[in-house]
């Protein structure tokens, strides 16, 4: 566990979520989902609060967090980049696009740049297969992206 201090208001907000879900361990995924919206990611300290709030073991919480690729233990960048690796995007060259982002930013998939500006992750299907391969930066969706377009996309965000 890294030494981090959680924002007290956010901690209260998370505890209220646990109360809302009746401290029910069966609601773990929903509570983690809410926790990730509140904190942006799920550091160990947040998982400990969730475990205590739902009366489940910390190991169990960690098991669920590491199972689902949606959950992340590293803070996302200011501009979170997601490359769809679903079947349609994959067969149309998403991997090359992903590699290009990592190459230009010096990251590995799942990491955030040291300046906190960009994070790179892959996801499975955003439901826009007609636009494959699809990249999202924050809320903005880019369709039919080729590796050659990556530099231009990053430039839009000041990279």
């Amino acid at each position: 566990m890294a030494d981090i201090t959680l924002d007290a208001d956010k901690v209260e907000e998370l505890k209220a979520v646990c109360v809302k879900f009746n401290h029910d361990g069966g609601e773990l995924i929903n509570v983690l989902h809410a926790a990730q919206i509140i904190f942006g990611y799920l550091p160990a300290e947040v998982q400990v609060i969730v475990a205590e709030g739902l009366n489940v073991s910390i190991a169990h919480v960690y098991g669920v967090v590491t199972f689902y690729s949606f959950f992340t233990m590293t803070p996302k960048g200011e501009h979170p980049i997601s490359i769809c690796m679903g079947t349609a995007c994959y067969v149309r060259g998403a991997e090359k696009v992903l590699d290009e982002f990592n190459k230009l930013l010096g990251t590995k998939t799942g990491e955030t740049t040291p300046d906190g500006k960009f994070s790179v992750s892959s996801l499975r299907c955003v439901g826009a297969c007609g636009l494959a391969p699809v990249v999202t930066v924050g809320e903005k969706v880019y369709g039919r992206v080729a590796a050659a377009d990556v530099k231009g996309i990053l430039a839009e965000y000041g990279a």
């Binding site: 098991g63 590491t66 199972f67 689902y68 690729s69």
Partner: peptide, 17 residues
């Protein structure tokens, strides 16, 4: 409650939190 399966697929293993 110390042990849990963690990670997924080939990487999955039983470990403490």
């Amino acid at each position: 409650g110390v042990l849990s399966a963690i990670n997924r697929g080939f990487e999955s293993v039983v470990a403490p939190a």
